[in-house]
Design a protein around this nucleic acid. Structure first.
Lengths: 256, 256
DNA sequence: CGCAGTATTGAAATTTCTCAAGCCGAGTGG
DNA sequence: CCACTCGGCTTGAGAAATTTCAATACTGCG
């Protein structure tokens, strides 16, 4: 399904196809979208809270993160994004950024101008629905983060986060065996999970000792997947990976 | 702008108009949507995690809440919704519910069948964009909840939550002076904010003593708004209340 | 080789939670 | 009209968890 293609357009079409039923004209419209590629260094900001970007971001490689900055200067990471994600579709409709985006490691981003994308979406409901669905899945992931950070003890919380990251990496064929990239420092994990970096370290030690997972040098190794899922109380259905809403019956062709 | 109208259709049109530029045909399409009204008692579930609803929910009155149920049975509230909210647009595109919805107090809900709504959205990009925008604001609120629950001390956290609820109530003309409904018990507040009900009580005591707000018998009174906002580090821009993305230039009319 | 950033660990300080008990107020039934 | 009950609120005190502080290792890169 997600074949190894270096082309941004192919990636985009694959991603949209996973979340809607695309007509040939939809795919052609995507292929017609111009973009520019930019590279970012670890920690570098891509857009900042308060900005009014005029382009949508598509991740080609690497990991990027959303985060909030509190008035105290403290940082809270909101979500992580990898190849194939469009973490900034919202800026198509919400002019002012309410959060920032930064590169976590070396990342390559394709930028699609908002006006061009909007023009395509007006005429192509099939594409609108596919991208809309992607933003809804994003929202489902936010909801899980609320629950995870609010209701689970440190080790369970970290385990749940790792389950999610591993599952999403697998979906994009980015895992090699039971290992995938997770280039976050323990401090950053703490800022994502609402824990001190010390607690992250101790949670991690526990997960290692119980032989559930290992996480070092930016690589996550899932040692015992089923035990890990059980420990973390991880139910992947919120990721809505199966195209569970079959919209193919919809009369996309019917226009006047 | 939001005039006192008892009609669900008027409410719906007002809401959509606040988030997009609607053509006459868009409004007519909304008016043509059939719905049924249902009433719910406090605590009653509207849809449950795992359900596959065939209708979207529009809140006519009262407060309803999203929540997750953990395998331990513990409950985590995700978000609250009042008159004019459509907390379940996502089920148009994500078949299986990843969370539940329940009534917090007595609530009246209008139900719009998915197939009918989808049919309208296919032909009316202006409506799609308006509702899409609403789901994106929902997502922005989730992001704030992650940050609020992850980064703020109990009193600040509760204060921020109250700021948000009060601001949203004002937006819908549901506040009388500096008072609005907030019919949550301290236990429920704890389940929303990731705190024990004891901590909620102590946070509340602090906010009362400092004369920032009062909250009792389901009513929130904002005593010193500017001091409260400062204390909570509340910046309402994430609510995107001003229609900050002006899409009116878009060629909605251009169809073939 | 050495530096800077990251990881690890212990121990003290603090926060938050749990447990337990009493209070208050609305609704009920004698 | 009053006693009763139930759920929610309030408070204190001890227990438990988490954070902070501090010091030491480790690692990759120039």
């Amino acid at each position: 399904m997600a074949k190894q293609s270096s082309s941004v357009h192919d990636l985009l079409i694959n991603k949209a196809s996973q979340h809607g039923t695309l007509l040939q004209a939809d795919k052609a419209a995507l292929l017609s979208l111009p973009f520019v590629v930019r590279r970012f260094r670890p920690g570098q900001d891509i857009v900042r809270q308060g900005d009014e970007p005029d382009a949508a971001i598509f991740v080609q490689s690497g990991m990027i993160a959303r985060y909030h900055t509190l008035s105290s200067g403290e940082r809270q990471y909101i979500s992580m994004h990898i190849k194939g994600d469009m973490p900034d579709v919202q800026s198509l409709f919400l002019k002012v950024m309410d959060h920032s985006l930064c590169a976590v490691d070396d990342a390559s981003i394709a930028l699609f101008r908002h006006d061009v994308v909007r023009r395509v979406l007006v005429d192509r409901p099939g594409l609108s629905f596919a991208f809309w669905r992607l933003t809804l899945i994003d929202a489902a992931i936010f909801r899980q983060a609320i629950t995870n950070n609010g209701s689970r003890a440190p080790a369970e919380r970290l385990a749940h986060f790792c389950c999610e990251r591993y599952t999403l990496a697998c979906e994009m064929n980015l895992a090699e065996g039971n290992v995938c990239d997770l280039p976050l420092t323990q401090t950053q994990l703490g800022q994502a999970l609402g824990l001190s970096h010390i607690s992250v370290n101790r949670a991690l030690r526990k997960l290692r000792r119980e032989r559930l997972l290992d996480l070092r040098s930016g690589k996550l190794e899932v040692i015992d997947h089923s035990a890990l899922v059980r420990f973390a109380d991880f139910d992947p259905s919120y990721l809505h990976q199966s195209k569970d809403s079959d919209l193919s019956h919809m009369a996309f062709r019917k226009r006047r």
